[in-house]
Design a protein around this nucleic acid. Structure first.
Lengths: 233, 233
DNA sequence: TGATATTTTTTTGTCGACACTTTTTATTGA
DNA sequence: TCAATAAAAAGTGTCGACAAAAAAATATCA
């Protein structure tokens, strides 16, 4: 965790910067899930006053990344398996909606850019010997680009502002990358093709399926973990 | 707007209470959409320090009820027609998901309670001479009860914590009640019947249709308003 | 008189202090 | 030695003050 003292770096308020850093630390597990947040300690670490830190915590509370109780401070959430599945359920229907709206709203040039993005992703996978499919957050992320194309700002806010962070948190916690990267890339291609053909129903179906497969993968991993636990008895 | 001075009334922190009051005032239009929020004025009105007020504003920011810009303070959002439609689009798919999950998760006694709730709603409509269908927020709200039955806490948080507030805000702004109350009630009955029969597909379809009808009603009202504007030239 | 520059006032962002609550440690009694 | 109680320490919630930025008011110039 970095200490922030140099105010010339950014034009944004301190509390925004603390919020970003805190969110990152929570998602990456630097502040472990379930752990108590100490305001005095954090404010010392970041070199800011407790009031500034509290503003950032208030925002994190509304992002469901911390839970607060009166006179007891804040605690990083601990995402249970059930909660993770809940998140995937929502992500599936919202992802499908985003895809349907992208079919209606994306320009031809935007779709061409999407193809290019996937070409870059393919290069990246091959450089990594086909072992992982890492998408840098933001403009290089396939799902984010679809959401942009949906032209539904609220959808972007809900997914990018909240649900994706929770899923990222889980991935950091359990060191999971996307399984079978080349297969995932192929699914991405199919989705973009459906968007290009302006086929709403197919695009939505393919996106929902893509996300459902990710959920099922999590479910299977969970089953294995449970079976391993029983085997250990 | 009330001044809060008596701390013996509640065990919750001041900032929580300010948050609730502010949210209510924003939704009801007491602080008009688009207007600038003056921290000194509000802190005087509520009788709290600006620091406390800012914590509440930070949470409202994450609820997308206010927009903040550095060194410029907060402004209540102004929900455009397009944004409202976006909200309904999301609400439709999430409402459908909630209904599907309710089919899977609601107990028989919970469904019986739902029937009772609708009986009470019918009484309320008749007392109002069939002119409106007002559902008190919380346990008396049909949609809220379905969400509870879904057992997806995240879904409840997204819808009840955010989207419903935006739609309430719009309703206050344009003084709209549900149109055709008895028809809406009938749709509610059909949804509960489908849940009772454990028919996921039908329940989801009926809920989505119910919400889509509300969206279409908004769209038609908007068309009329546009036509009226042109007629006025 | 209108445009621009300067000054003043107000607002925003942040700080550290104080009061209250909770947790930890020390003391007392059985 | 253990349990209960009291005291001390730490943490939480809130306050008002200060510095910086923005807005409003005033002065100056063409």
């Amino acid at each position: 965790m970095n200490t922030i003292k140099n105010r010339n770096q950014e034009a944004s308020p301190l509390t925004d910067r603390i919020f970003d850093q805190l969110q990152d630390s929570i998602i990456k597990g630097e502040i472990p899930a379930g752990s108590k947040i100490s305001e005095p300690e954090l404010s010392k670490t970041y070199g800011v006053s407790r009031g500034t830190l509290r503003e950032a915590l208030s925002r994190l509370e509304e992002r469901h990344l911390v839970i607060r109780a009166p006179n007891h401070g804040a605690r990083v959430i601990s995402l249970s398996y059930e909660e993770l599945i809940e998140t995937y359920q929502i992500r599936e229907v919202l992802g499908g909606l985003g895809c349907r709206l992208a079919v209606r709203n994306m320009t031809d040039s935007e779709i061409a850019e999407l193809h290019k993005l996937l070409d870059e992703h393919e290069k990246s996978i091959k450089e990594d010997q086909g072992l992982s499919y890492y998408q840098q957050e933001g403009e290089f992320d396939f799902h984010y680009r679809i959401l942009q194309g949906s032209r539904n700002k609220m959808l972007l806010a809900i997914l990018d502002g909240g649900l994706y962070q929770l899923i990222r948190m889980y991935r950091y916690q359990f060191s999971t990358d996307s399984p079978r990267p080349l297969l995932a890339l192929k699914e991405h291609h199919r989705i973009v093709d459906a968007i290009e053909e302006r086929d709403e129903d197919l695009a939505e179906l393919l996106m929902r399926r893509h996300i459902r497969i990710a959920r099922i993968s999590v479910e299977q991993r969970h089953k294995k973990a449970l079976a391993k636990e029983k085997g250990d008895v």
